[in-house]
Amino acid sequence: MIKIALAKGRVASEAVKLFKEIGIEFSDYDMNRKLILRDSSNQVEIVLVKPSDTPIYVENGVCDCGIVGKDILLEDNPDVYRLFPLNIGKCKMCVCGFKGERIEGRKTITAASKFTNIAKNYFDSLGIKSKLIKLNGSVELAPLLNMSDVIVDIVETGTTLRENGLDVLREIEDIYSVFIVNKASLKMKHSKLKPFMNQLKKLKLGGEK
């Protein structure tokens, strides 16, 4: 039995679709509020978790693998294998703020973000001393209320930004979902995981056309 940690919501829905394409079906997905579901052939079990917790279940070995956004891997740097990207949840990590807000040439910057480590590393690489404010959501509010100069956040369509009068100032990195595996599981359950991973990898390539 392979146990997979999946972020509740979009990632899980997309992943369940991918699994269906390779013949692994979860007929009762989205039918009830169960957090642990088994496929019809009893080969795979999915565990629905909070997105930012996904790597924690994998790192501790209670799940063999998981699908998680690269943003969370960059922010928390968990001790897991990051094997291949999946065609789910594509977006960008960006610095956003009011149009015309300068970044070059600054000595200091105040940034609000859910991803304070990513933000700090980015500004460090530019040689800008950053003051970071950790927020857990609705990050756009910070510049609007003049609490920060900019925000660092993932941007998909940019609608929320524009509706609040903000713009993308810099793109930091492409974000996509990554298939992660527990270090002991990859080795000790390799014969079970390998065919499963190979099928997923093929899908990913097919979907990228």
């Binding site: 790192e59 501790n60 070995g61 001790d79 527990n182 270090k183 002991a184 599981s185 000790m188 359950k189």
Partner: peptide, 9 residues
Amino acid sequence: IYSLSAGRE
């Protein structure tokens, strides 16, 4: 040396 029940080395 890994142990599956430990989930790590």
